[in-house]
Simulated scan of single mutants.
Amino acid sequence: MSTLSTAEILDLDLPDWRPVGGALRTRFVTKGFTAGMELLRAITPLAEEANHHPDVTLTWPHVDIALVTHDAGGLTGKDVDLARAISAVAAEQGVPADPSVVQVLEVALDTGDHEAIEPFWSAVLTGAPDNVTDHEVIDPTGQLPGLWLQASESAGEGSEKQPAMRFHLDVYVPHDQAKARVEAAVAAGGRVTQTRFEPSWTVLEDTHGNTACVCTDLPHG
């Protein structure tokens, strides 16, 4: 099954959903645990019929849902169809969606030799040295954010130069919320240090030089 690009997803009529962090995500504001359970009860037959099961987080005030076709390695028509069906059920129950608040946190570690340290970080975070995909340590239990081993700009692969071993945070937000998030960070004392990869990500620093990136699922220019 072919995957859909972020641009293709955004061209579809999916007002309740946003592509964030490699998945189609939303939050339904239930304002109560019982209402959340009722929504999930109504969604379950849809997922079973489609043989396509979303990741769901139920809390007292809301239900978070993420859709991705794992065996295709991205978003597909199956995700779009189920998203529309879920939105229809939520509308019938009078449960509004608020996709503007969805976000995903990824931790990044700059290194000059990611392959040398990937097994260590995988073992520390997951208990096994081989839970790594495309230089990202992924917790198979789904409890920890991903750790991306990022090639450092200050030391290339195999370089004798001491690599920059620096952690920073990548915060994935909806594409239509990124500008506001960057502006909020700047207003709080930060500064933008790099924009050449926008709209995919913007690099910021706090007053002590600590780095963070506000990211979207859009490709960079």
Rank of each mutant, 00 (worst) to 15 (best):
M1V: 13
T3E: 04
T3D: 02
L4E: 02
S5H: 01
T6F: 03
A7C: 04
E8C: 07
I9R: 01
D11F: 00
W17F: 13
P19C: 07
P19Q: 02
P19V: 05
V20C: 06
V20W: 03
V20N: 00
G21M: 07
G22I: 06
L24S: 04
T26Q: 08
R27K: 10
T34E: 13
T34P: 00
A35Y: 00
A35V: 06
A35M: 09
M37I: 12
M37V: 15
L39A: 10
P45W: 12
A47D: 01
A50S: 04
N51E: 13
H53V: 10
P54S: 11
P54R: 08
P54I: 04
V56T: 09
T57W: 12
L58I: 02
L58R: 00
L58A: 02
W60G: 08
P61G: 13
P61D: 11
D64M: 07
D64T: 06
A66P: 09
L67Y: 13
L67S: 08
V68R: 10
T69E: 05
H70I: 08
D71N: 05
A72R: 12
A72I: 03
G74S: 10
G74P: 12
V80W: 08
A85N: 05
A88L: 04
A88P: 03
A91W: 12
G94I: 06
V95H: 03
A97F: 07
A97S: 15
P99V: 02
P99S: 09
V101C: 08
E106S: 11
L109I: 06
D110Y: 02
T111K: 07
G112Q: 00
H114G: 01
I117Q: 04
P119M: 08
F120N: 00
W121C: 00
A128I: 04
A128T: 14
A128G: 05
V132L: 02
D134N: 11
V137S: 07
I138C: 04
D139L: 11
D139F: 04
P140K: 09
P140T: 05
G142F: 10
G142D: 03
Q143A: 14
S152G: 07
S154I: 00
G158Y: 07
K161S: 04
K161G: 07
A164N: 10
H168L: 05
D170T: 02
V171M: 15
V171Y: 11
D176L: 05
Q177A: 14
K179I: 13
A180G: 14
R181E: 15
R181F: 12
V182T: 13
E183K: 14
A184Y: 08
A188F: 08
G190K: 12
G190D: 05
G190S: 14
G190M: 03
Q194F: 14
Q194H: 08
T195F: 06
R196F: 02
E198W: 11
S200R: 14
W201Y: 14
W201G: 03
D206V: 09
T207C: 05
H208S: 12
N210D: 09
A212C: 14
C213M: 09
C213D: 07
D217W: 12
L218V: 06
H220A: 12
H220D: 13
